[in-house]
Every structure is written in C-alpha cells, then in structure tokens.
Amino acid sequence: MPTLTLLQAVNSALMDEMAEDENVVVLGEDVGLNGGVFRATEGLQAKYGENRCFDTPLAESGIIGTAVGMAVYGLRPVPEIQFSDFIYPAFDQIVSEAAKMRYRSGGEFTCPMVIRTPSGGGIRGGHYHSQSPEAYFAHTPGLKVVMPATPYDAKGLLISAIRDDDPVLFFEPKRIYRSIKQDVPEGAYEVPIGKARVAREGTDCTVVTWGAMVETCEKAAKQAEEKGISMEIIDLRSLVPLDEEAFLESVRKTGRCVVASEAPRICGFASEVAAIVSEKAIESLEAPVLRVTGFDTPFPYSLEHVYMPDAKRVLAAVEHAVNF
C-alpha cells in the first residue's frame, strides 16, 4: 500500500474517479498543464485530455457557474477554487443556484458537483490565503460540507463526494497537505459522508474538531496526558450532514466538551456543535461547553501564530473544563 500525503491522496482520488466515470471533469485556474498551484491535479490532463481537465479564465463565479450548468446537464464537475479565500465571487452561484437547484425545481434538476478548495491558515499566507469559510456554506441548506484531516479520509471522502448526487464543498486543510503521510489503498474506496471518526480515545474531556485542527488537538492530547488528563478527539470529517451521535455519545461518557476550530468565533461552526451539546447532552455536562477558535479579527499575517488556536489554547480550555 503506498504511503501518501493528503495532497497525493486527493490526486489519487481524482485519478481513480476520472477513470471510473467519464462524466467527471476537473476545471479551475491552473489545474491543467500546471497541475494546480499545489499540484493536486497533476497529471490529470496528460492522462484524460483537455476535455476532462482544463484551465479556466480567472473568474470564480464563472468556474462555479459553468460547473452548475455542466452538472444540470449531466456531468459531474469537480471545480477547484485555488484558495477558499477566493470563493466569494462564486458565492451567489453556490448558495443561490447549486444549493437550491434540486429543491426549487421540485427535484427535477440536480447539481452533483464537488467544489474542492484548500482552506485554513498556517502557511504564512496572510488574509487572502488562510481563512476558514466553512460556516458560510454549512449555513446553506442543500450543500454538503466536508473537511478531511488525514490522507486516507481525503481520498475516501473525495470519492464519496464525487459519487454524491448533491453539491459538496470539499475543504482541503492545506497546512497539512504535505506534513502527514499515511498508508492509502490503491484504487477507489469510499469513506461515507456524514460519519465522524474517533481520532483518539479518552475519558476526561471530549474535543470536537475537524480539518487541520485535528493534528493540533492531538498535540494537545499528548501534553494533557502528561498532566494526567485523558482527551477524546472527535474528527467530524463532515459538517453537513453532521454526525451528532458521535460527539454526543462521547460527551455522555466524558461529561465535558471543548470545540476547536480555526475560524472566527461568532456564528462559527463550533457554536453549532456547542448548541447541539447543550440541547441534547445537558444532563451529562459537568462543565460549560467551551469553544477554542480564531479571534473575531481578520486573519493576520505577522501574528498568524498568535491568531491560530494552538495546542496550548486547546489544552487551557480542556484544563478549564476538567477543573470546573
């Protein structure tokens, strides 16, 4: 079994699904000959031709808008938005069109597409290459929102997303694109959308997180262990649909819940998780549900390391919950 980075796993999923289904096409800025600025689409054009993997003019609303037309017609487009910070010109096409096509047409027309986009901070990218916009999309009925934290999940979730009959926002945690390696099977396999994963078992405090923050929380868990605190980490993998039972079950066991996310706090997805825990597991809670998030400031450049929640901040919240 080959050992792949998350980036290579994404590439492997695209390679396999394009072979599997000739309706799958990849489009975006620099995804063709250049193979994408991160190289996620490397080799696709050479293997499948310019009809199946092609560069677009520099217009995100055009990339997504044309992909909506292709999907409605019967293809399964996988458009790439080069950085999720550039997704906003396409917001209208995503939330007003792709998300609502099935519903507004009474189920007549559908929009099966996967919008792949690298997101999150920690690459010295400043405001326009670092944000975590998943909450905007999780707030829109009709969209599925997925974010893998490991190479194995990246491949399996991307394949599931491409085979899904609804539009999927597939956020790729670019900070860990190349830093984590894992055995990834050759050939296609699915990791189901809507199923969370217990990334680490523990007994004292549940930490719910997703994307690159899973790695941060694992660091925090090791530090916590040295202090005699056993952390359980739930990697959501999908924000919509959300595997509520996975973290509720964990919280019922530990009695404590911390939610960790890179995105700003106000109306972030961490707040949604906290609300669900409060509504459905209040009788198990021995401490308030705490959020560890980015600050409610624009994403900074020089002080990126201060802005982003690190293991220390996660650990502080866990200790607060445990000592409450």
Partner: peptide, 23 residues
C-alpha cells in the same frame, strides 16, 4: 431549466451546459 430570481446567474450556467455538450 429551473428559473431563479437573480437576473444573470443562468447566463453562466448556459455557457457551462454548452461546454458540457462540447465535451
């Protein structure tokens, strides 16, 4: 194809469907 109220979104989608026809 299903109509939405925003006035121009279908223009790009029509272009996309035509690209799909060509593909």
């Amino acid at each position: 194809v299903s109509i939405s109220s925003p006035i121009g979104t279908q223009i790009v989608q029509g272009a996309g469907a035509a690209m799909a026809m060509k593909i």
